[in-house]
Computed example of a mutant assay.
Amino acid sequence: MNERIKPYLLETEPYYRPAGREIELFEAAYARRMPMILKGPTGCGKTRFIEHMAWRLRKPLITVACNEDLTSSDLVGRFLLDANGTVWHDGPLTTAVRFGAICYLDEVVEARADTTVVIHPLADDRRTLPLDRRGELVRAHPDFHLVMSYNPGYQSSAKDLKVSTKQRFGALDFHYPHAEIEVEIVMRESGVDRETASRLVGIARQSRELRGRGIEEGISTRMVVHAGGLIAHGIDPHASCRIAMTRPISDDEDVLHALDGFVEAHFGP
Protein backbone atom coordinates (compact mmCIF):
# COMPACT_ATOMS: atom_id res chain seq x y z
CA MET A 1 0.00 0.00 0.00
CA ASN A 2 1.27 3.46 -0.88
CA GLU A 3 2.54 5.53 2.06
CA ARG A 4 0.32 8.43 0.97
CA ILE A 5 -2.85 6.68 2.07
CA LYS A 6 -1.69 4.53 4.98
CA PRO A 7 -2.74 7.27 7.47
CA TYR A 8 -6.32 6.84 6.23
CA LEU A 9 -6.52 3.20 7.38
CA LEU A 10 -8.74 2.71 10.43
CA GLU A 11 -6.77 0.82 13.08
CA THR A 12 -9.68 -0.03 15.41
CA GLU A 13 -13.13 -1.29 14.55
CA PRO A 14 -15.80 1.45 14.56
CA TYR A 15 -18.86 0.10 16.35
CA TYR A 16 -21.81 -0.38 14.04
CA ARG A 17 -25.02 -2.29 14.79
CA PRO A 18 -26.62 -3.48 11.53
CA ALA A 19 -30.34 -3.04 11.11
CA GLY A 20 -30.74 -5.26 8.05
CA ARG A 21 -28.68 -6.56 5.13
CA GLU A 22 -26.74 -3.36 4.53
CA ILE A 23 -23.32 -4.92 5.27
CA GLU A 24 -23.90 -7.82 2.87
CA LEU A 25 -25.25 -5.52 0.16
CA PHE A 26 -22.42 -3.01 0.46
CA GLU A 27 -19.81 -5.78 0.28
CA ALA A 28 -21.41 -7.00 -2.95
CA ALA A 29 -21.40 -3.46 -4.36
CA TYR A 30 -17.75 -3.00 -3.37
CA ALA A 31 -16.81 -6.28 -5.07
CA ARG A 32 -18.11 -4.77 -8.33
CA ARG A 33 -16.81 -1.29 -7.41
CA MET A 34 -20.36 -0.01 -7.89
CA PRO A 35 -20.50 3.64 -6.74
CA MET A 36 -22.92 3.95 -3.83
CA ILE A 37 -25.20 6.55 -2.27
CA LEU A 38 -26.13 6.25 1.41
CA LYS A 39 -29.51 7.96 1.92
CA GLY A 40 -31.02 8.78 5.27
CA PRO A 41 -31.71 11.38 7.97
CA THR A 42 -29.01 13.22 9.86
CA GLY A 43 -27.37 11.25 12.65
CA CYS A 44 -28.83 7.86 11.74
CA GLY A 45 -25.48 6.10 11.26
CA LYS A 46 -24.46 6.63 7.61
CA THR A 47 -20.97 7.87 8.38
CA ARG A 48 -20.40 5.26 11.07
CA PHE A 49 -21.51 2.61 8.58
CA ILE A 50 -18.96 3.61 5.94
CA GLU A 51 -16.25 3.82 8.60
CA HIS A 52 -17.15 0.30 9.71
CA MET A 53 -17.14 -0.98 6.12
CA ALA A 54 -13.75 0.59 5.40
CA TRP A 55 -12.36 -1.16 8.48
CA ARG A 56 -14.08 -4.42 7.54
CA LEU A 57 -12.72 -4.31 3.99
CA ARG A 58 -9.27 -3.15 5.21
CA LYS A 59 -9.35 -0.15 2.86
CA PRO A 60 -8.28 3.45 3.54
CA LEU A 61 -11.15 5.92 3.91
CA ILE A 62 -10.81 9.53 2.72
CA THR A 63 -13.79 11.63 3.82
CA VAL A 64 -14.79 14.97 2.31
CA ALA A 65 -17.35 17.08 4.20
CA CYS A 66 -19.22 18.80 1.37
CA ASN A 67 -20.46 22.38 1.60
CA GLU A 68 -21.56 25.14 -0.73
CA ASP A 69 -18.03 26.59 -0.86
CA LEU A 70 -16.49 23.32 -2.03
CA THR A 71 -14.93 23.73 -5.48
CA SER A 72 -13.80 21.15 -7.98
CA SER A 73 -10.22 22.22 -7.21
CA ASP A 74 -10.81 21.36 -3.55
CA LEU A 75 -11.64 17.83 -4.70
CA VAL A 76 -9.14 17.19 -7.49
CA GLY A 77 -6.23 19.48 -6.59
CA ARG A 78 -4.49 22.68 -7.65
CA PHE A 79 -1.14 24.28 -8.36
CA LEU A 80 0.40 25.93 -5.30
CA LEU A 81 3.52 27.97 -4.74
CA ASP A 82 6.20 26.61 -2.45
CA ALA A 83 9.98 26.86 -2.09
CA ASN A 84 10.43 24.93 -5.35
CA GLY A 85 8.07 27.10 -7.38
CA THR A 86 4.64 26.14 -8.67
CA VAL A 87 3.82 22.55 -7.67
CA TRP A 88 0.71 20.46 -8.23
CA HIS A 89 -0.99 19.11 -5.10
CA ASP A 90 -3.57 16.35 -5.43
CA GLY A 91 -6.92 16.89 -3.74
CA PRO A 92 -8.59 14.18 -1.60
CA LEU A 93 -10.53 12.71 -4.51
CA THR A 94 -7.45 12.43 -6.71
CA THR A 95 -5.47 10.87 -3.87
CA ALA A 96 -8.16 8.22 -3.42
CA VAL A 97 -8.31 7.59 -7.18
CA ARG A 98 -4.53 7.25 -7.59
CA PHE A 99 -3.83 5.02 -4.62
CA GLY A 100 -6.98 2.97 -4.12
CA ALA A 101 -8.95 4.38 -1.17
CA ILE A 102 -12.67 4.65 -0.53
CA CYS A 103 -13.63 8.30 -1.11
CA TYR A 104 -16.66 9.33 0.93
CA LEU A 105 -18.41 12.57 -0.06
CA ASP A 106 -20.51 13.37 3.01
CA GLU A 107 -23.74 15.33 2.39
CA VAL A 108 -22.85 15.68 -1.27
CA VAL A 109 -25.90 17.79 -2.20
CA GLU A 110 -24.45 20.66 -0.17
CA ALA A 111 -21.74 21.02 -2.84
CA ARG A 112 -22.39 23.01 -6.02
CA ALA A 113 -23.58 21.06 -9.05
CA ASP A 114 -20.60 22.23 -11.10
CA THR A 115 -18.36 20.70 -8.45
CA THR A 116 -19.94 17.27 -8.25
CA VAL A 117 -20.02 16.86 -12.04
CA VAL A 118 -16.30 16.01 -11.90
CA ILE A 119 -17.21 12.62 -10.43
CA HIS A 120 -19.21 11.51 -13.48
CA PRO A 121 -16.36 9.80 -15.38
CA LEU A 122 -15.37 8.05 -12.15
CA ALA A 123 -18.87 6.73 -11.57
CA ASP A 124 -19.31 4.86 -14.85
CA ASP A 125 -17.32 2.31 -16.83
CA ARG A 126 -14.56 4.82 -17.61
CA ARG A 127 -13.36 5.08 -13.99
CA THR A 128 -11.17 8.02 -14.94
CA LEU A 129 -10.55 11.46 -13.49
CA PRO A 130 -9.50 14.22 -15.94
CA LEU A 131 -7.15 16.79 -14.42
CA ASP A 132 -7.62 19.51 -17.01
CA ARG A 133 -5.28 22.03 -15.40
CA ARG A 134 -2.53 19.45 -15.27
CA GLY A 135 -3.28 17.88 -18.66
CA GLU A 136 -3.54 14.42 -17.09
CA LEU A 137 -6.09 11.63 -17.18
CA VAL A 138 -5.92 9.58 -13.99
CA ARG A 139 -7.19 6.02 -14.26
CA ALA A 140 -8.68 4.75 -11.03
CA HIS A 141 -6.72 2.27 -8.94
CA PRO A 142 -8.50 -1.13 -8.85
CA ASP A 143 -9.35 -0.62 -5.15
CA PHE A 144 -10.85 2.86 -5.59
CA HIS A 145 -14.48 3.11 -4.53
CA LEU A 146 -16.74 6.18 -4.59
CA VAL A 147 -19.41 6.61 -1.93
CA MET A 148 -21.67 9.60 -1.24
CA SER A 149 -24.30 10.39 1.37
CA TYR A 150 -27.19 12.77 1.68
CA ASN A 151 -30.45 13.36 3.49
CA PRO A 152 -33.26 13.13 0.89
CA GLY A 153 -35.81 14.65 3.26
CA TYR A 154 -33.85 17.77 4.12
CA GLN A 155 -32.51 19.55 1.07
CA SER A 156 -34.61 21.70 -1.26
CA SER A 157 -35.32 20.56 -4.80
CA ALA A 158 -32.73 23.09 -5.97
CA LYS A 159 -30.09 21.10 -4.08
CA ASP A 160 -31.14 17.65 -5.21
CA LEU A 161 -28.70 15.51 -7.17
CA LYS A 162 -28.89 15.58 -10.94
CA VAL A 163 -30.58 12.59 -12.53
CA SER A 164 -27.42 12.03 -14.56
CA THR A 165 -25.55 11.67 -11.26
CA LYS A 166 -28.10 9.46 -9.49
CA GLN A 167 -28.24 6.96 -12.32
CA ARG A 168 -24.54 6.23 -11.98
CA PHE A 169 -24.94 5.01 -8.40
CA GLY A 170 -26.50 2.24 -6.40
CA ALA A 171 -28.24 3.32 -3.20
CA LEU A 172 -28.83 2.06 0.32
CA ASP A 173 -31.60 3.53 2.47
CA PHE A 174 -30.85 4.24 6.12
CA HIS A 175 -33.38 5.05 8.82
CA TYR A 176 -33.30 5.48 12.55
CA PRO A 177 -32.98 2.00 14.06
CA HIS A 178 -35.87 0.08 15.58
CA ALA A 179 -36.29 0.98 19.24
CA GLU A 180 -34.62 -2.18 20.58
CA ILE A 181 -31.57 -1.72 18.36
CA GLU A 182 -31.35 1.98 19.12
CA VAL A 183 -31.37 1.23 22.85
CA GLU A 184 -28.47 -1.20 22.36
CA ILE A 185 -26.54 1.43 20.40
CA VAL A 186 -27.08 4.09 23.08
CA MET A 187 -26.01 1.72 25.85
CA ARG A 188 -22.89 0.69 23.96
CA GLU A 189 -21.85 4.18 22.85
CA SER A 190 -22.71 6.23 25.94
CA GLY A 191 -22.31 3.84 28.86
CA VAL A 192 -25.77 4.31 30.39
CA ASP A 193 -27.90 1.42 31.63
CA ARG A 194 -30.75 -0.09 29.64
CA GLU A 195 -33.51 1.75 31.52
CA THR A 196 -31.92 5.16 30.93
CA ALA A 197 -31.21 4.34 27.29
CA SER A 198 -34.84 3.24 26.81
CA ARG A 199 -36.10 6.53 28.23
CA LEU A 200 -33.80 8.59 26.03
CA VAL A 201 -34.80 6.64 22.93
CA GLY A 202 -38.47 7.09 23.85
CA ILE A 203 -38.00 10.87 23.90
CA ALA A 204 -36.24 10.81 20.54
CA ARG A 205 -38.90 8.68 18.90
CA GLN A 206 -41.64 11.03 20.09
CA SER A 207 -39.72 14.02 18.74
CA ARG A 208 -39.49 12.41 15.29
CA GLU A 209 -43.27 12.43 15.10
CA LEU A 210 -43.07 16.25 15.12
CA ARG A 211 -41.14 16.37 11.88
CA GLY A 212 -42.88 18.82 9.58
CA ARG A 213 -44.83 20.26 12.51
CA GLY A 214 -42.35 22.77 13.82
CA ILE A 215 -39.05 20.96 13.36
CA GLU A 216 -37.19 19.85 10.25
CA GLU A 217 -35.62 16.82 11.88
CA GLY A 218 -36.35 14.94 15.09
CA ILE A 219 -33.74 14.00 17.67
CA SER A 220 -31.13 11.77 16.02
CA THR A 221 -29.45 8.67 17.39
CA ARG A 222 -26.23 10.67 17.56
CA MET A 223 -27.89 13.25 19.82
CA VAL A 224 -29.31 10.52 22.07
CA VAL A 225 -25.81 9.09 22.47
CA HIS A 226 -24.50 12.55 23.43
CA ALA A 227 -27.22 12.92 26.06
CA GLY A 228 -26.47 9.47 27.40
CA GLY A 229 -22.79 10.34 27.61
CA LEU A 230 -23.59 13.42 29.70
CA ILE A 231 -25.74 11.35 32.04
CA ALA A 232 -22.96 8.77 32.38
CA HIS A 233 -20.65 11.68 33.23
CA GLY A 234 -22.90 12.66 36.14
CA ILE A 235 -25.11 15.36 34.62
CA ASP A 236 -28.77 15.01 35.59
CA PRO A 237 -31.10 13.68 32.86
CA HIS A 238 -33.12 16.87 32.40
CA ALA A 239 -30.04 19.03 31.85
CA SER A 240 -28.49 16.37 29.63
CA CYS A 241 -31.56 16.19 27.43
CA ARG A 242 -31.80 19.97 27.27
CA ILE A 243 -28.16 20.40 26.22
CA ALA A 244 -27.83 17.50 23.80
CA MET A 245 -31.33 16.74 22.51
CA THR A 246 -34.00 19.42 22.76
CA ARG A 247 -32.32 22.84 22.49
CA PRO A 248 -30.18 22.07 19.41
CA ILE A 249 -33.15 21.19 17.18
CA SER A 250 -35.51 24.13 17.73
CA ASP A 251 -35.82 27.74 18.89
CA ASP A 252 -39.62 27.72 18.78
CA GLU A 253 -41.09 28.07 22.29
CA ASP A 254 -44.11 25.86 21.57
CA VAL A 255 -41.93 23.11 20.13
CA LEU A 256 -39.50 23.33 23.05
CA HIS A 257 -42.41 23.14 25.48
CA ALA A 258 -43.57 19.94 23.77
CA LEU A 259 -40.06 18.48 23.82
CA ASP A 260 -39.64 19.34 27.49
CA GLY A 261 -42.93 17.57 28.09
CA PHE A 262 -41.52 14.43 26.50
CA VAL A 263 -38.52 14.62 28.83
CA GLU A 264 -40.72 15.04 31.89
CA ALA A 265 -42.92 12.13 30.81
CA HIS A 266 -39.89 9.84 30.75
CA PHE A 267 -37.79 11.21 33.62
CA GLY A 268 -40.36 12.93 35.82
CA PRO A 269 -40.90 16.65 36.49
Rank of each mutant, 00 (worst) to 15 (best):
Y8N: 09
V163F: 15
Y176M: 02
V183I: 10
H226Y: 14
F267L: 06
N84H: 15
G214M: 05
G229S: 10
E27N: 13
L93Q: 04
P121L: 05
D132P: 11
T165M: 14
L25H: 13
G218K: 01
L137S: 10
G91P: 01
R199C: 01
R4V: 15
T47L: 06
L131R: 06
G268Q: 03
R48G: 12
I185T: 08
E182A: 03
P35Q: 09
V87R: 12
A179G: 13
L61R: 07
L57R: 06
E216P: 05
A28G: 12
I219A: 08
W88F: 10
A31V: 03
S164D: 11
A123C: 08
R247V: 04
A227M: 03
L9R: 11
A158R: 15
I243Q: 12
A111E: 11
Y154N: 13
L129T: 02
S250A: 12
D260F: 02
K159M: 12
I102R: 10
R194H: 06
D82Y: 05
R133L: 13
P152M: 07
I181H: 13
F169V: 03
Y176E: 00
A232F: 03
E209S: 13
G228K: 04
N84K: 15
L10C: 03
W55T: 00
A101G: 12
I185D: 09
Y150W: 10
T95K: 14
I5Q: 07
H257L: 14
L172G: 08
A83D: 15
R199I: 00
R199H: 02
G40E: 02
S220D: 05
V117M: 12
E136C: 04
T165L: 14
K46Y: 10
A123N: 09
G100T: 08
T165I: 12
P237E: 08
L122G: 03
F26W: 01
I23N: 08
A54C: 06
I119K: 11
G43T: 00
T63E: 11
L10Q: 04
M34K: 14
D125M: 14
V109E: 14
D132V: 14
K6W: 09
S198C: 09
E68D: 13
E107D: 12
P92V: 03
E51I: 02
V186P: 00
H89I: 08
A65W: 13
T196Y: 00
C66V: 05
A158F: 14
L129N: 06
R222S: 06
I219T: 05
A171F: 13
M36H: 09
L230R: 05
Y15R: 11
T116A: 12
A29S: 14
R168Q: 09
I102C: 11
D114N: 08
D114C: 04
C103G: 10
A265S: 13
E24R: 10
K46G: 08
Y104S: 01
G212P: 01
G43W: 00
D260E: 12
R48N: 13
E184T: 01
K6C: 08
R56E: 09
L172E: 06
E180N: 11
E13G: 02
D193V: 00
G100S: 12
A101K: 08
K162R: 15
T246P: 04
D106E: 14
G43I: 00
A158P: 13
